[in-house]
């Protein structure tokens, strides 16, 4: 701003004298608070219009009324030891977002694992891959059969217990209400089938061409037998299977028609021609 005074100090003095006496603190306060009579208000306006000092005073006083304490040295202020909540909000949002993404990832991964395990189980069940079929060690010389099994195909037997993990996996995939205990049967075409109680029967030993005639379950131990002396054993509710060779008797391939196990390790297999085999070690040796 351009100055028109040749001597600012003298002009300031002259200005002060011309402006008259300053209003007291009461009047200035009441002026800013609207508490003056109209005559007084006009008088204060007249003075303020001519007095830069009082305008400065009034501005500073009203500015200090409710304004924040600005410009103060930080260490002199009694600041909160914690930043205000609003400063945390962005970080809380980011953390919440990360947590949600991680949780979703974990849930997705868990479901994927369960699905893979169920798929593996289903793949193993219908067809028995050659790699999963273990050839049992040849049994010693066969003894005399002491029992004969009755043909029962197609038959259905029930397992006493189920593979809990597999059943749980399938149950989680297919929904609740699915039984954890597998059911077994031999269908009309001679294939062994398994179901988890949802009405869907899945064939096991799909690559086996011989007709199966009987299935026996004791806990997780599953025995399936049929024509051509075929005897299969699974110790995990039918997920993996092992071919069990039986010693030859009577010079021909027997048709297994009966399987009984009193314990998981002790049982008897009977053929249609009256031959029978017993084991007391879970099928490793047969007599």
């Amino acid at each position: 701003m351009k100055q028109i005074e040749s001597n600012p100090l003298k002009m300031e003095l002259a200005r002060s004298q011309q402006a008259g006496p300053h209003p007291d603190s009461d009047l200035l306060t009441a002026f800013s608070e609207g508490g003056l009579l109209e005559r007084e208000r006009q008088e204060v306006f007249a003075h303020l219009a001519a007095c830069a000092d009082c305008r400065e005073l009034l501005s500073a006083a009203t500015g200090a009324a409710a304004g924040p304490v600005t410009g103060m040295k930080p260490f002199l202020l009694q600041r909160s030891t914690h930043p205000p909540l609003r400063a945390w909000l962005p970080w809380v949002s980011v953390a919440a977002g990360i947590l949600i993404v991680c949780s979703a990832g974990l849930v997705y991964r868990q479901k994927l694992e369960l699905k893979q395990r169920a798929t593996i189980a289903q793949e193993n069940a219908p067809g028995l891959p050659s790699s999963t079929i273990r050839q049992a060690s040849p049994p010693p010389a066969a003894g005399t059969p002491n029992s004969v099994a009755q043909p029962s195909a197609p038959s259905q037997t029930h397992s006493a217990f189920a593979n809990a993990e597999t059943a749980r996996a399938l149950s989680e995939i297919s929904g609740s209400g699915v039984s954890a205990r597998p059911h077994w049967r031999i269908d009309s075409s001679g294939h062994a089938e398994r179901s988890f109680g949802d009405g869907a029967w899945q064939p096991v030993l799909a690559n086996e061409s011989a007709r199966m005639r009987v299935v026996s379950v004791f806990d997780a131990e599953v025995w399936v037998g049929g024509e051509n002396a075929r005897l299969y054993h699974s110790s995990d509710n039918g997920n993996t299977w092992t071919v069990v060779p039986l010693p030859m008797k009577n010079g021909n391939e027997p048709i297994i028609v009966h399987i009984r196990f009193k314990t998981p390790r002790t049982g008897t297999v009977e053929a249609a021609d009256g031959a029978s085999w017993t084991t007391s070690d879970g099928g490793v040796n047969w007599n």
């Binding site: 603190s25 009461d26 306060t29 800013s32 608070e33 006083a61």
Partner: peptide
């Protein structure tokens, strides 16, 4: 003793302090 009650006492104190 200078306070006259024209404005609030807090406002008056603030103005005196500012002066």
């Amino acid at each position: 003793d200078y306070y006259m009650g024209r404005g609030s006492l807090e406002g008056w104190l603030r103005t005196v302090l500012t002066r």
